[in-house]
Design a protein around this nucleic acid. Structure first.
Length: 618
RNA sequence: GGGGGUGUAGCGAAGUUGGUUAUCGCGCCGGCCUGUCAAGCCGGAGAUCGCGGGUUCGAUCCCCGUCACUCCCGCCA
């Protein structure tokens, strides 16, 4: 009984037609004489009615239907009596009076119901992901992801980009994130790595003359996952020859414009504002600021001298910074609320969060009250004026090394943005963060490392001081941020082997080592490699933001948990001794007994295996 | 590696300042019901209170350990 319509298709115009529908029993309502069922498929829900005039066999069959039975049925489309129309349903003006029902497959009682109210824990949802994905909300998000991918492919193709796949088994590059390794059977003791990105290959493709490349690429990084980070994720990876960052920005702005228009019907304003990294850090305390609310950090150094407040004075004397945040109208904050904010600041390395409240004294002049008031009250008027603060405002301060101070206060800013509901929902505030530092100093290893990656172009004005002052070198590096998330990251690349060598040297690669690791790239660049640059928007985060979600797990069909486990298929799992032997591998002894899918995992094992998980250890 | 939160029936939750019978909603099973659309009404089954250990006459509750999920710091070229 093949379907003639989907469950979201029928309307009053179809009245009188004999139709066939296929789908799942979403819900049943048995009134004894008359029986209703809601039939669901990807496209919607249609009410089916089996009246008392129906043959006894059909009524018995209808009564036996349970949630999530997969059925086919034939019936006649009827316009519902006026009072029985349901305006909250797309198909609410009609119903299908069934004449025939066939059960295609029964269903056990489902662990959770397939509707918008179902609120099962993440691990339960992931164990039964196939049921979770039946919900309209998941189907919408996965479909949105499809629309985004299609729009991207269409758009980039129209601009002469060529989609090219690159290997997923590559050479391990120790710089950067931890690699996932694949042991080689044919070369015992040797390993492939899963790519952290197609970086080297896309640069080689530029050397190959494919001057516009893209790929929706899977990237693998063996680091601890987060809500916005999975062990494997997808990037819209692209690279262009003969361009500077303006051309890259224009391509991405055009892409985002189309993607948001097609996916959400939202029209973005372009060009996106550009914010230098230093500004972003100083104003928002983050290199991925949430621009949906203001609340900017301010510099407080000018008022520290002579205040007598040792904490601030010492921070400045040590070359650090004192940053202030004006929280308008929140002088009523309790001690507890301030302590909570201080905890946030401490998480990011600050030793404390100083505060005071702006008020007026008996004479009506601006003064401070509470916290560090006594050090700054004498100049309260000047300070308030300079910070743009007024009566009833709360002032918050962090004094520390510059990066700690801005980052910690930036975290407080972000926290306040959420707590005080300063964020306008449903808005998308994009910006380019530009002029990132090229190098960072690694205290632990006592050496300079690449802040982004090794192949980004230093800006021309720093070429002479590259070796003498790496810390001040800005690169042609850029991130696209939106609503507090890093949505894309890219750079103009080095195409000159000599300059590339200098960068390698600064991060401590001697020429031999550089040649061993990246020799093929240097070699390729000796044959007329064009200037080039690119960027890679994260597909999962993009769709997550568009869907209004806070975790990329919500927009990935089969994601892993925060610990990298897939509860549905018990992955990762052990392998047989024989497989290890073929690879020339032996397991080191471990003191912990249980694997990641250990014995007391809640929920029943879908295959009814031994509940202690021993089957997985074999 | 570190810190916070959570874990009670298939699912979501309440609860016990330590007390013998652990509660509610949904789902499930049975019955009733002619217009519902989160249908309604009556009845029923279903829980080693994540797991292990300790304290106690007695632990779901307190303590220690552990596992899982989750958020955060670190990490994430």
């Amino acid at each position: 009984m093949k379907r003639t319509h989907t469950c979201g298709a029928l309307g009053v115009a179809d009245t009188g037609k004999t139709v066939r529908l296929n789908g799942w029993v979403h819900r049943t309502r048995d009134h004894g004489g008359v029986h209703f069922l809601n039939l669901r498929d990807r496209y919607g829900i249609t009410q089916v009615v089996i009246g008392e005039e129906a043959p006894e066999a059909l009524r018995a069959l209808a009564a036996s239907l349970r949630m999530e039975y997969c059925i086919a049925l034939e019936g006649v489309v009827l316009e519902r009596p006026q009072a029985m129309k349901n305006p909250s349903m797309v198909t609410g003006e009609i119903e299908v009076s069934a004449t025939r029902i066939e059960i295609l497959n029964t269903s056990e009682a489902v662990p959770f119901t397939i509707d918008e109210r179902s609120d099962a824990r993440d691990d339960v949802r992931l164990t039964y992901r196939y049921l979770d994905l039946r919900s309209f909300s998941m189907q919408r998000k996965i479909a949105l992801r499809h629309t985004v991918m299609q729009t991207v492919r269409e758009y980039l193709s129209s601009l002469d980009f060529i989609e090219i796949e690159t290997p997923t088994m590559i050479k391990s590059t120790p710089e950067g994130a931890r690699d996932f390794l694949i042991p080689s059977r044919l070369h015992p003791g040797q390993f492939y790595a899963m790519p952290q990105s197609p970086q080297l290959y896309k640069q080689i493709l530029m050397a190959s003359g494919f001057d516009r490349y893209f790929q929706i690429a899977h990237c693998f990084r063996d680091e601890d996952a987060r809500g916005d980070r999975q062990l494997e994720h997808s990037q819209i990876d692209l690279e262009m020859s003969f361009v500077g960052k303006d051309e890259v920005f224009a391509v991405i702005e055009g892409m985002m414009t189309r993607v948001f228009h097609k996916g959400l019907g939202v029209d973005l304003e372009t060009p996106f504002p550009r914010i230098p990294y230093d500004d972003a850090m100083n104003r928002y305390g983050s290199d991925k600021p949430d621009l949906r609310f203001d609340l900017e950090l301010q510099d407080f150094a000018a008022f520290v001298a002579g205040s007598g407040f040792g904490v601030f004075e010492n921070a400045l004397a040590a070359g650090g910074a004192v940053k202030a945040l004006v929280v308008p109208g929140q002088a009523g904050f309790s001690r507890k609320q301030i302590t909570d904010l201080e905890e946030t600041a401490r998480t990011y390395g600050a030793r404390g969060l100083a505060w005071t409240k702006v008020t007026r004294d008996d004479s009506g002049s601006i003064t401070f009250e509470g916290g560090i008031a006594k050090f700054f009250a004498p100049r309260a008027g000047d300070i308030a004026a300079a910070l743009g603060a007024g009566e009833g405002d709360l002032l918050l301060f962090v004094a520390d090394q510059w990066k700690v101070a801005v980052t910690a206060l930036g975290a407080v800013r972000s926290r306040l943005g959420h707590n005080l509901k300063l964020i306008e929902e449903g808005t998308f505030r994009f910006a380019w963060i530009v002029d990132f530092p090229l190098f960072e100093y690694d205290q632990d290893e006592d050496r300079w490392t690449a802040a982004h990656h090794l192949f980004s172009m230093p800006q021309a004005q720093y070429l002479e001081t590259l070796e003498s002052d790496p810390g001040s070198v800005k690169g042609d590096l850029y991130d696209l941020v939106c609503n507090g998330f890093e949505l894309a990251s890219g750079s103009i690349r080095i195409h000159d082997p000599a300059l590339q060598q200098r960068v390698f040297q600064i991060v401590g690669f001697d020429p031999d080592e550089a040649r061993r690791r990246f020799g093929f790239l240097l070699e390729a660049f000796r044959y007329g490699a064009p200037p080039h640059g690119g960027i890679a928007p994260g597909l999962d985060r993009l769709v997550m933001i568009m869907a209004g979600e806070e975790s990329i797990r919500e927009v990935i069909a089969f994601p892993k948990t925060a610990t990298g486990v897939s509860p549905m298929d018990s992955c990762p799992g052990p392998v047989e001794e024989k497989q290890l032997a073929e690879l020339g591998l032996m397991l080191a002894p471990r003191n912990t007994g249980n694997g990641p899918a250990g014995g007391d995992t809640p929920g029943k094992d879908p295959e009814g295996k031994a509940p202690d998980g021993n089957d997985r250890e074999a």
